[in-house]
Design a protein around this nucleic acid. Structure first.
Lengths: 244, 244
DNA sequence: CGACGATTTGAAATCAGTCAAGAGCAGTGG
DNA sequence: CCACTGCTCTTGACTGATTTCAAATCGTCG
């Protein structure tokens, strides 16, 4: 087997395999998926609404986000994606994209032909289930974001997002601390939280003045995780990180 | 083959087969799924957050909804479900429920053991893909609701929900008109739209005064669909009704 | 009729939005 | 090295959509 650490699909494999249901053959089948590496610059569109994507993408490095634009011009961001996220497997099944995927930072993507995704799901039930599982976790995150935007006030919403990001970064295993780069402008944060950038700014300052976080530039340090999680009504069960 | 119209899973089969990818054998396999019929009264919980469901449910008759409750007591409804909807196939894969499913009206459910769902997905790739597809449409609806709640004002939000409901009912084939029973209290509508029931009330009255809808009791008649859809920024692409 | 839940209406309060201007910070180029 | 440019962040004053609180009306069902 190839060295997972060097393979473009290594992060995906780690993700798919975390429930422990993949055999060595399954794992090899994932690594053998046809793929080519592509690079996008920050702010490039990876998928546009109404596209018929030919590839499903796995994020190899960098950050990306999914969003949709309302008729009144408002943009809603649905999710932020990290290394290892299969950001549009759904397009292998749905055919027509109903929302946009955009690069938040410069990114590297492993592009897998949609037919290959469908084929591996059909021929390899373990992998198929694991892929399905990933899209269901996406779903769970969407639901939590809907709850966040619909039923929490600005402070709680913001705190919730900061906690989610911290935990997902930790789950990647690269960063054990509660300090991280949040590669988003306050405008983008606003579109994720359904707030204006002005109010995001005021809210971040409040959190900082309350001693919950420290900031400098885009770097965030959660100085009181327990209180921030409490304030943000953050219960990570929806992330399904514990391979249930 | 059994008469689909009389089989509890007939509506599910119709749903799964709409893309035309199921062979006769696939269809029979779906109808052969082990299931038992269960009835719930309006407001009964079908699945509770943190449950480990033993069954996945298909809605045979009535209406159900999915929701989650925030720490501050606010409830956010994520989706309303109609006959034929597989309201918690996701629980066959995820194991632990991260949100509630509740009966909106009296309902009949076909309860399929979660193991049987996983088995048919593994042994029958066409059916597996069709099930996956259904959960992806759920996802698409969640995203649109997030956009609705996050980026549209009260009038547009409400109009959007009314249009979605009309179209999904039409897709069921039972009702070709734009008049239907909306089996929700204004309180429940508020939880779906992230508004208070008071504001839902005012907004419905506005829509009525503007000549877009007529109401009596819970019955809604869309008198000007074109304008309502325009106002609600409603583009049904996200429902993926056209078997793309 | 009486009771209960749901809907409707009114008035006051508030959270977040809008508009607008200034400050900070990188990168660019002279 | 510094001025310039562009973008993001910060701040203030004002506005407004929606919430809150509270009371009245309606409809249905026993």
């Amino acid at each position: 087997m190839l060295q997972p650490a060097e393979h473009p699909l290594a992060a995906l494999l780690q993700r798919l395999g975390r429930r422990g249901t993949l055999t060595a053959a399954d794992q090899q089948a994932v690594l053998d998926l046809p793929q080519k590496l592509a690079k996008f610059r920050a702010n490039d569109f990876i998928v546009r609404e109404d596209d018929t994507p030919k590839h499903s993408c796995v994020l190899v490095s960098g950050f990306a986000y999914r969003h949709k634009i309302a008729g009144n011009g408002g943009r809603q961001i649905f999710s932020i994606h990290l290394r290892g996220d299969a950001i549009d497997i759904h397009n292998a099944v749905l055919h027509r994209a109903d929302h946009n995927v955009q690069a938040l930072t410069d990114v590297e993507l492993a592009m897998i032909p949609v037919g290959a995704v469908r084929d591996i799901a059909a021929s390899n039930p373990n992998v198929g289930l694991a892929l399905w599982y990933e899209t269901l976790i996406d779903s769970a995150i969407f639901r939590e974001w809907t709850l966040n935007v619909g039923r929490r006030d600005a402070r709680a919403r913001t705190a919730h997002l900061l906690c989610e990001f911290a935990l997902r970064l930790k789950a990647l295993g690269t960063n054990g601390t509660n300090e991280y780069e949040l590669p988003m402008t306050q405008d983008q944060l606003g579109d994720a939280l359904a707030l204006t950038s002005v109010h995001v700014n005021r809210t971040l300052m409040t959190l900082e003045n309350e001693g919950l976080i420290e900031r400098s530039r885009r770097s965030v340090k959660i100085t009181d995780y327990a209180r921030l999680a409490m304030l943000g009504d953050f219960d990570p069960a929806y992330l399904h990180l514990d391979t249930d």
